[in-house]
Computed example of a mutant assay.
Amino acid sequence: MVNFMYMSRLTDSLRRAPAMSTLVRNKVDGWLAQALPGRCVFCLAALPSEHPWCEACFTELPWNLPACPVCAEPQPGAARGRRCGHCLRRPPAFDRAWVPLYYDAEVASLVQRFKFDASPRAGRVLLELMVVGLPPAARSWPEALVPVPLHPRRARERGFDQARWLAARLGRELGRPLARAQRERDTRTQRGLDRGERRRNLRGAFGLPAGLPRRVALVDDVMTTGATFDTLAMACRQAGAEEVQAWAVARTPPGRH
């Protein structure tokens, strides 16, 4: 009989090991999926439903509520349902954002394994969380999905394009085509930059061929300040889109940019 408590602790320690290679991490993921079918991805409890999580873990995830109705930045309770100060001072080029979770705790761990270790198991869980977190009206809204593009050099270095992976599978789930944007120049990393610096760093970074559908949704794994989505939304409007939404799995809480 499998000792599930032991397996949970062992799996968590393996995933946190800094020296573990991508290959080993993915083998651990694959082995767990085969050895422990029908178990919650977070606590390994038995699952009564088709989702890869139990109800208790799902409820305890860091949900991004309440949030600004335009950019999805987390809001204090007193500001519930109102535009945040950033959107009042400088409205973004996208019309609204859907970002169901905080980039924190178990969600941050899943994103890191997905983005930097190319874990398909983590990617599948994030994809399901994204679909569940989108209201039905949002899921049926776009005419095309536009993944936030990596520069080709960075994609080669990383060996994995997480936004394209998510958008391709989300498009199949929703029955929507992909429209591909191009990274026109290799911008420096956004880490450590404030909101204004991020916008300046990305100026003119994206291009798309003309003829986009009227309604498009931009797709990425994490939304930090929204500067990348803002710049890409401008390029989409120049290519013919009239309405643009920004979709991501998780939003970085204020103060952690």
Rank of each mutant, 00 (worst) to 15 (best):
F160L: 03
W247S: 04
T189E: 05
W31D: 09
R90N: 03
L218E: 10
Q190N: 01
A168C: 07
G133F: 04
E242A: 15
L10R: 15
M1N: 02
A122D: 08
V219N: 11
R169V: 07
S109A: 15
L129P: 02
R199H: 11
W165R: 02
D104N: 10
C68R: 10
G226Q: 11
R215D: 01
R39S: 14
R183A: 15
R256L: 06
L101N: 02
A138Y: 04
A217F: 14
L88C: 12
F114D: 11
D12P: 00
V131Y: 14
C68G: 12
P18L: 00
G204F: 05
L23N: 09
R113M: 13
R96T: 14
L127Y: 08
R169S: 06
G85P: 00
R153L: 14
G123V: 00
E197D: 13
T187A: 14
Q245G: 09
C84R: 03
R256H: 03
W98R: 01
Q245W: 06
T22C: 10
P136W: 13
E197P: 00
V111N: 09
P18C: 00
M130C: 15
L23E: 15
T225M: 04
A19L: 14
R153S: 15
A246Q: 07
G240H: 03
A35P: 10
S8N: 13
R113G: 15
V70S: 05
F229W: 00
F4D: 11
D161T: 01
R214S: 15
R15A: 11
F94K: 06
R183D: 12
P177E: 06
R180M: 08
P76Q: 04
Q34W: 10
C236Q: 07
E60C: 06
P91I: 05
H257V: 13
L232M: 06
Y102E: 11
C236E: 06
R158L: 10
T187F: 01
C43R: 04
L174M: 08
A137I: 15
L193S: 01
V219C: 13
W31Q: 12
P100D: 08
